[in-house]
């Protein structure tokens, strides 16, 4: 059952991968105009040069030939050919994404954990004080974070901590004057990471708060809670031991489902904090109409999401006794 479950998940991931490749292939081709037309429209090019460019990029061939070439290219290099970046010209679009990827991975991996912990913690408190003012405040806060655009949350936190209190740096990922690799550099990087992580955690924890609360409250309807009360076990212990623990598994699946949302939050937060991650090049690419970079970004981030949800499925398999012993 374990292998069957994992195989099904892997098949799902493969299907997602195929769909993403299809979207990346189809979308630029159904739109009027392609990148050669774009280049030709921005400067004067003779007709022969345009035809030569068409032949060079293989755009004069019929669609199915293009698709076969595209598919072969994906299989060989494991990513489609997005061409060169317009803005960072001598670099290929996909390489631009790889250069900035580590910062986002660093930020996101920490933010995922803090978001999860914050959401579960607040959800636990809300369900402990069920149907009191505290519960209502936390629940409203959760819905409010879902209904507020991420960049508003980021901006408010930036204003409070960096502009008024001046206790943390306002932007960037490190102080450029420091020597990379030294202890003070690492501390500096961590200091720059605090505000973006707070912003991402607050901006995306809403669904975790709501779900934790719902799961705990629905578990508490079960009969054995009355027994536990009757025996005289404390309320906090009952909540954590008997209501939260069985509910941790669906919450971990939720991390997999919401990973994309956290990634979106990270992108917008990076723009506000001018953090040199994928959000930064996303903004640059939009400003300079750098379509190859935008497509590569979409591609790489989708792959990140697929991998993340596969990893979470693996964790789920290791944790769930029903699957583990099956």
């Amino acid at each position: 059952m374990k292998t069957r479950y994992l195989l099904r998940k892997a098949g799902q991931a493969l299907l997602t991968y195929l769909i993403i490749n299809m979207v990346v292939f189809i979308l630029p081709r159904v739109m009027p105009g392609n990148y050669v037309d774009y280049i030709a429209s921005t400067r004067y090019l003779p007709q022969e040069a345009v035809r030569e460019l068409y032949a060079k990029f293989g755009l004069d061939e019929p669609l199915y030939v293009q698709f076969i070439k595209f598919a072969i290219n994906v299989m060989i290099t494991s990513s489609p050919d997005f061409g060169y970046s317009y803005y960072f010209y001598p670099l290929r679009a996909i390489d631009v994404v790889y250069i900035y990827l580590p910062w986002t991975l660093l930020l996101l991996s920490i933010a995922t954990i803090t978001t999860f912990l914050l959401g579960v913690f607040l959800g636990l408190i809300a369900s402990y004080y069920k149907e009191t003012a505290i519960d209502r405040i936390i629940t409203s806060f959760a819905i409010f974070t879902m209904s507020t655009p991420y960049f508003v949350v980021s901006l408010l936190i930036l204003l409070i901590f960096a502009v008024y209190l001046k206790i943390l740096p306002a932007g960037g990922a490190y102080t450029p004057t420091l020597q990379p690799g030294s202890i003070s550099f690492i501390l500096d990087v961590m200091k720059h990471m605090v505000l973006p992580i707070i912003a991402i955690s607050i901006g995306t924890s809403g669904i975790f708060i709501i779900m934790t609360r719902e799961i705990i409250l629905s578990n508490m309807l079960e009969g054995f809670f009355t027994t536990a009360y009757a025996i005289g076990i404390g309320r906090a212990k009952i909540l954590i031991e008997y209501a939260l623990k069985p509910g941790i598994l669906p919450l971990i699946t939720l991390v997999g489902i919401r990973f994309g949302t956290m990634l979106s939050g990270a992108l917008l937060t990076e723009i506000i904090y001018s953090y040199p991650g994928l959000g930064y090049i996303l903004y640059q690419a939009i400003l300079s109409k750098d379509f190859p970079v935008l497509q590569s970004l979409f591609y790489i981030m989708s792959i990140m999401i697929i991998i993340a949800s596969l990893i979470l499925d693996l964790i789920y398999t290791l944790l769930d006794p029903r699957i583990r012993r099956g």
């Binding site: 299907l15 769909i19 979207v23 949302t261 979106s264 996303l282 989708s302 999401i305 949800s309």
Partner: peptide
């Protein structure tokens, strides 16, 4: 498959 791709990415790709 579509549900794991975040709306923001699709929106950026389509509207750009």
């Amino acid at each position: 498959s579509f549900i794991v791709i975040p709306p923001l990415l699709i929106m950026i790709l389509v509207s750009s």
